[in-house]
Design a protein around this nucleic acid. Structure first.
Lengths: 342, 342
DNA sequence: CTGAAAGCGCTTACAG
DNA sequence: CTGAAAGCGCTTACAG
């Protein structure tokens, strides 16, 4: 690799001091520089294809113009996470125009490695961080708080006061289940996750229970199946539910991916959805609209989650204020699998 | 934020010079340091929670321990890219243990912004780069080559000699189509992409044509539909194919996502897959196994693509040698949609 | 085996 | 309006 050109080279070519070059290239407005000098500097920089060294700049300015995006997840989940790309895009759509780079770190759920995200902070690699799927008992969290580092969490963490962005999982799940109730179902099952990941799964389960209670329907533990986010786990959970002596007439799955597996299981059991069994999912990932029958599901604004989280960290970085948490709206998308269109 | 502790603080507490601290913490082996001194330094570092500043280190060492992952894609495609998370995981699974960070940059296909990936290089933010989906006429490519910067491309780019990792799209598509031929189909359609993105789409189309030719089947332009990676485009393409006076008896879709849309269109037209129409996809994304009928498809090793690309760049960085291109194996996964199991 | 010193490439008060 | 100089926090020949 050829030697990079530096500020000094530009200064020499333009016949000015390095200070002046720095001022010109950084558009410093507190100081007036003659138009002629300015042009000389710009021309020299262009001629030499000058690009300031990011490390040197970060060191001097004490900021990196880089944001960390930390994904706490199991690799099995990550590999098939239909939700992630949209979130990634959302983050990127905000950071890029703002001049920030995005450092992505994958953190396996069971990782015991000491080299986790807190090092990004301690090594001053990033100016702010977005945490997805952290558990509330993560030992690094208190440190972040103690250092008053700009952080936004995707998901809700009871017991601490970090700014977060999320959807109201309880309420969304409740509405999905109430939709099934409104269609006349009395025996409604739920397939949710056992994941320790944030409180998403627990909240969706709670929403399900709240809906039943609100309509004086009995809560029956045997009607709750547990999965692990995979389609296969949805498949298995559905099989168990269908094996019950008194099987449910409707099922609320806490993710579309599990609903997909559940759909398969219903078909394999010879049941027609929605005629013999109603099904509602959660997330509204792409395939939900196209599978047969198309999935009635709760639409979660993935891109907006990413964009909002990014906006919030940038806000903290720039103003120093902690923004209020944001709950984004969800919407129940009625399609074929619930039977409302029959 | 409290002031970070620096090398100097550690040196003072341990009662040694900064040089010694640096040697100890970097495990420099060319120089022997007394065990006693070593311990004093390590203790001091631990006591002060010392973490070396990444920018300072990068500046001094002239390397960042960071890899760039550049995704050239349309945002519509990115948002629903079921393939990406596995690739991301693949990259991360190699870089993380090697001590490298991953900087992800999304590059919209139609972006005219000057601030594209070449700046990552010029600003010395990264030590190597993985490019996904670059077009061979990308104007930044020659610069990368001229600067002899470590780069690996995911996908093949005729007309330049960068190291790359890919699958043999022509061959894989050919085998998929030959499978349909072997089932007795004579009138086989193809749904592919118009994307300018690398040569993936063109290659899959070529594989389709090669298969037909190899079996003396006529090539019929009206049997080729073009999509844009979205499920909806697959849906539309299939509708057009079904509207032909002489409709195909089998369809090869160049991606599972488009196959999903195609499946829907077939159902809406009252056709049963595979009884009335055989269908084969490409990619083997998660839902392929669960939709009804499950998709016969070409399995592409997404995680291995990411991991291999990462290994290749690290190799270039560490040895300076340009590795040979790597073509990963694909496999035709026979499921229900092709009718082989009837 | 250890330390003083130069250097990495920038920014930014401060003096003029 | 411009420049000499200190500083950001490391690494690394070099001298002892």
């Amino acid at each position: 690799m050829t030697k990079k050109t530096s500020l000094t080279d530009v200064a020499e070519l333009a016949g000015v001091s390095r200070t002046t070059v720095s001022y010109v290239l950084n558009h410093v407005t507190t100081i007036h520089i003659s138009e002629k000098t300015r042009q000389r500097v710009l021309d020299a920089a262009r001629e030499l294809h000058y690009h300031p060294n990011a490390s040197a700049r970060s060191l001097a300015q004490q900021r990196t113009l880089t944001l960390g995006l930390v994904l706490c997840t199991s690799h099995n989940r990550l590999r098939t996470d239909a939700f992630l790309p949209a979130v990634l895009y959302g983050v990127s759509s905000i950071t890029a125009p703002a001049g920030y780079r995005m450092l992505v770190q994958v953190l396996e759920e069971d990782a015991t490695s000491p080299d986790t995200y807190i090092n990004l902070v301690h090594e001053a690699r990033i100016d702010g961080i977005i945490l997805a799927g952290v558990r509330s008992d993560d030992p690094q969290l208190p440190k972040l708080r103690a250092e008053n580092f700009p952080v936004v969490i995707w998901g809700q963490l009871p017991g601490n006061d970090f700014p977060f962005v999320d959807v109201d999982n309880v309420r969304a799940a409740q509405m999905a289940v109430e939709h099934l109730v409104s269609l006349g179902h009395q025996r409604i099952a739920c397939i949710t996750n056992t994941s320790l990941r944030s409180h998403e799964s627990a909240d969706r389960l709670r929403g399900y229970q709240t809906a039943l209670r609100a309509h004086d329907l009995p809560l029956d533990d045997s009607l709750v199946g547990y999965g692990n986010h995979s389609a296969y786990s949805g498949f298995e959970a559905m099989r168990s539910l269908l094996a019950l002596s008194e099987r449910p007439s409707a099922v609320f799955a806490a993710s579309d991916v599990m609903a997909l597996g559940a759909l398969r299981a219903a078909r394999d059991a010879g049941l027609r959805v929605p005629h013999d069994l109603a099904l509602v999912g959660f997330d509204d990932v792409q395939f939900a609209e196209y599978v047969v029958p198309s999935l009635t599901t709760v639409q979660v604004p993935a891109q907006a989650i990413g964009a909002t989280a990014a906006r919030m960290v940038l806000d903290i970085i720039q103003t120093g204020n902690r923004p209020a948490p944001i709950l984004l709206e969800t919407e129940l998308v009625i399609r074929e699998s619930c039977g409302a269109q029959l």
